[in-house]
Amino acid sequence: MTHSPVTVAARVRGAAVGALTVALATVAHAWASGAAPSGAGVILLGVLAVTVGAIAATAPAATTVPGLLILLAAGQLTGHVLLAASGHRHVASATSDAAMLSAHAAAIVVCAVLVAVAGRLGEALSHAVRAIAARVRSEPPPAADTVAYSADQPLQATLALAVSKSHRGPPVAAH
């Protein structure tokens, strides 16, 4: 079995899927019961977030919308079971089980599409940045064609050069 390193994009996808799983479960149960989960429920949701995030970061199927749908749906179902096991109960409300199930399903679809689109956008953006960085690195440094001299007193320097010319020497006709 070969081991491939987890890329930064996979880690970000895993963190997003784990966080979305817990956020959806927390919001849905807080809405249904009137109170956010606390105590053991929060700890169990944290373990769920790490587990689902690790699966999303390492499973090749988690890069596709169907794979993300399955992973997020399993996370929601597991979150519901964990919260029920920790004593977090729903109160009787006007929302039916069908309405809650359809809200979960819609949220799962939206989140799966958003994570998949963000992954594709991240890939495109990283390819563009790599192409630009490679082009910038491959350009040679600008040629030094012009030489600039600076002097505090350029006119004085020119005058000093003109005065320093010696006119002494053998006569021209002596050659």
Rank of each mutant, 00 (worst) to 15 (best):
A106V: 09
A35C: 05
L44F: 01
H104L: 13
H127V: 09
G41I: 00
A148Y: 09
A118T: 13
V65G: 04
L121C: 11
R11V: 12
V12W: 06
G39N: 09
A62Y: 01
A98W: 07
G79D: 03
H175W: 13
V110N: 09
S102D: 00
A28N: 05
A73Y: 04
T7D: 00
R135I: 02
V6H: 04
L20C: 10
S93C: 06
T63K: 07
Q156H: 14
T58F: 03
G34W: 02
T21W: 02
L45W: 03
S93M: 08
I132Q: 11
A74P: 05
A99C: 05
A35T: 08
L101R: 10
A173H: 11
R11E: 14
A54G: 15
H88N: 00
L72V: 04
A73T: 15
G46E: 01
R135P: 05
P60T: 14
A54F: 00
G119W: 02
G53A: 07
V109P: 07
L83N: 01
I55E: 06
L101G: 10
T158E: 15
L82C: 01
A54P: 03
V117M: 03
R120Y: 05
A35L: 06
H104D: 11
V42H: 03
V27C: 03
G87R: 01
A54S: 11
A134I: 09
A144K: 15
A94K: 07
